[in-house]
Write a protein that binds this DNA or RNA. Structure first.
Length: 600
RNA sequence: GGUCCGGUAGCUCAGCUGGAUAGAGCAUCAGCCUUCUAAGCUGAGGGUCAUUGGUUCGAAUCCAAUCCGGAUCACCA
């Protein structure tokens, strides 16, 4: 970022000096060019692409390149060391002195991280589970994404509020409750030694099994499928329970609170383990009546219309979106009604500039409708609602369906990852002196690191394929690879620390090897990575950056010794490089919710 | 059917606001541990960037059409 903006400014200045008179017509001095990284097969650090200038200057790209390169060097003798022109590409190299003083400066600032100050108040809503079943792989993607995006936005200078809305009411919750009443014989998490969310989840599946059975029986007795589905006793009981719940029936409320309590306890355990946290949690049981007022207001304003049966609609056909029901004939609200109410509440209570919803892409349409409805209702924040939609996690073995129990359970997967980490660690045998407590901690760091990296390294928008039979890798483009690089550097620092280096004296040499230059330039790009990731709401940008940096360091590591450097000056330089790389790897991984081990 | 998203190496994915010979990881093959951690490093093979046409100095990238896959279009949440 620092370099590209600096180069852009320098190029602009030179172009103005050289060609202002030559430009006919426009006087805004707007020169078109592009700055790219120089491809490794050419000499140089950055490449200025000149083709776009050819037309307005009416010169050959080679001529422009020579003139511009020459002028740049003359004008910025402390910044550029050399240039070359190949076809329409002007490759420039940055001076060693500039690079090492940048490293020096950033070393003293402790970080290359973003200095951006956006100062926006942003809410990120993510996780948003149902309290009738445990979390599965899809929820993990959501949690990791939401948490990471929130941290990335913070790193980019925003004030971020993390929230979750818990879907704790409704017919599906009653299903688990009814099935528990009928089949559980009073089983509790304590009596069964099972995590509460799993226990409740079983009865959700059980409901579905029983329901199917009853429907089949009724069909056998001669009912139509439709009739059977309506009349199945367990479904009727469930619907009655929902009514009782809405009327505040003490017995139902009691059971509801108890069973939700079990689920929350289970969720908390999982959240704590994966490091998900929220500044505020909304509960649907509190928010589901929100939004009705706006419907009334909208009616008065004439934005909404009412049908004969009393139902209220909004017409979005001008936005290519059809009509949408906002209030049923009996006056009860639907999902989107409360969403409108909650959106408004969020903006007002928190004075938000932006509200981001981390929700699967199957709700793209819903979110579009929500946004347009809010706009039509005249609420000013419609444009500040963003849907960070992510693709489903699909299994090689078919679709995940909680109802049918064909999901990759979050807790199971985490356990599996952690034990794989243990297995690898045991095989390598590098930490035999660790206490059992330290080992346990290490396995968590590595197992979760592998899993988070795996889920975050791909573009959120894309759906991803997961093979439950194949374990997530610990080699190559993975979390453990980056963690390993960090641990390696710590190993160097542990050995050198005893020698009491005086870093305050700075880097005494400007004699840089190609790999040392590459590392500095790469470190400098962390800032750009954070910016890009924040603008795109895409943690994969960070994952890719951090991986490339680690790869670069490893190549450097095998070629050049820090401890036994050619001379004292080299040693100091490389220590700076090592510390900075470790800092950024740690910081970058943190943005992905991944911790680093000191040894592994 | 309408709308939206995707199709890049055997597999999983980068690259997509147009730029040089399309990149990683896994898998395959060949090397590297008396020197700071081999969860590592070096190298090799592997491509009709779904197809066809267009735009231009230049297209994986932009446009159009077609094919394939998916999501969605509730008085469910």
């Amino acid at each position: 970022m620092i370099f590209t903006t600096k180069i852009a400014a320098a190029v602009n200045e030179s172009l103005q000096d050289l060609y202002t008179q030559d430009i006919t017509g426009s006087t805004d001095n707007n020169f078109q060019f592009q700055i790219n990284d120089t491809k490794p097969e050419f000499e140089g650090d950055y490449t200025i692409v000149l083709f776009a200038l050819v037309k307005s200057l009416r010169k050959s790209p080679e001529a422009i390149g020579q003139e511009l390169g020459n002028h740049l060097l003359k004008n910025n003798p402390n910044f550029f060391s050399s240039y070359n022109v190949i076809k329409g590409f002007l490759n420039v190299s940055i001076k060693n002195e500039t690079l090492s003083s940048l490293l020096q400066e950033n070393y003293q600032n402790k970080n290359f991280g973003s200095k951006a100050k956006n100062n926006q108040k942003v809410m990120v809503e993510y996780s948003s589970p149902n309290t009738n079943k445990p979390l599965h792989l899809g929820h993990l993607r959501n949690n990791f994404l939401g948490w990471s995006v929130a941290e990335i936005l913070k790193a980019n200078g925003n004030d971020v509020v993390k929230t979750s809305i818990v879907n704790d009411r409704g017919i599906h919750i009653c299903k688990s409750m009814i099935a528990w009443q009928q089949f559980a014989n009073g089983a509790t998490p304590d009596s069964t030694k099972e995590k509460g969310d799993h226990l409740v989840g079983h009865y959700y599946v059980k409901f579905n099994d029983e329901y199917k059975k009853e429907v089949a029986d009724l069909i056998e007795q001669g009912k139509s499928k439709e009739e059977a589905e309506k009349e199945a006793p367990i479904m009727k009981k469930t619907q009655q329970m929902l009514l009782d719940w809405e009327n505040g029936d003490p017995k139902v409320m009691d059971l509801w609170r108890t069973m939700n309590g079990w689920v929350y306890k289970g969720f908390d355990e999982t959240y704590q383990r994966i490091g998900s946290d929220f500044d505020h949690t909304f509960y649907e049981s509190n928010t589901y009546l929100l939004g009705k007022d706006f419907v009334q207001e909208g009616l008065q304003k004439g934005v909404l219309s009412q049908k004969e049966d009393g139902s209220v609609w909004i017409d979005l056909s001008d936005k290519n979106l059809d009509q949408k029901l906002l209030l049923r004939g009996d006056g009860t609200s639907v999902y989107i009604t409360q969403d409108i109410g909650l959106a408004k509440q969020k903006f007002e209570e928190y004075h938000l500039d932006k509200s981001i919803y981390v929700i699967g892409d199957e709700q793209l349409h819903h979110m579009k409708v929500l946004k347009e409805t809010i706009r039509k209702l005249g609420m000013p924040f419609a444009d500040n609602i963003f849907h960070l939609s992510y693709g489903m996690v699909e299994l090689t073995t078919g679709k995940m369906k909680s109802r049918e129990g064909t999901v990759v359970d979050a807790d199971d997967l985490i356990n599996e990852m952690v034990s794989t980490a243990e297995q690898h660690t045991m095989e390598l045998g590098k930490v035999k002196d660790f206490t059992s407590q330290e080992l346990k901690e290490l396995y968590e760091i590595l197992g979760l690191g592998a899993m988070k990296f795996y889920l975050l390294r791909v573009d959120p928008k894309k759906k991803m394929l997961f093979d439950p039979k194949e374990s997530i890798d610990f080699h190559g483009f993975t979390g453990p690879f980056v963690q390993y690089t960090y641990a390696r550097i710590q190993s160097i620092l542990r050995k050198v620390a005893t020698e009491n280096f005086d870093f305050s004296k700075g880097i005494p040499s400007n004699d840089l090897l190609p790999m040392e230059r590459e590392l500095i330039i790469s470190l400098e790009k962390y800032d750009t990575a954070i910016n890009d990731a924040a603008n795109e709401l895409n943690p994969a940008v960070i994952a890719n950056y951090v991986f490339n940096l680690a790869k670069l360091f490893n190549a450097f590591y095998v070629n050049h010794s820090v401890m036994n450097a050619e001379n004292e000056e080299k040693k100091i330089l490389r220590l700076h490089l090592s510390v900075m790389t470790a800092n950024i790897l740690k910081n970058g991984l943190h943005l992905l919710g991944i911790r680093v081990p000191q040894r592994m």
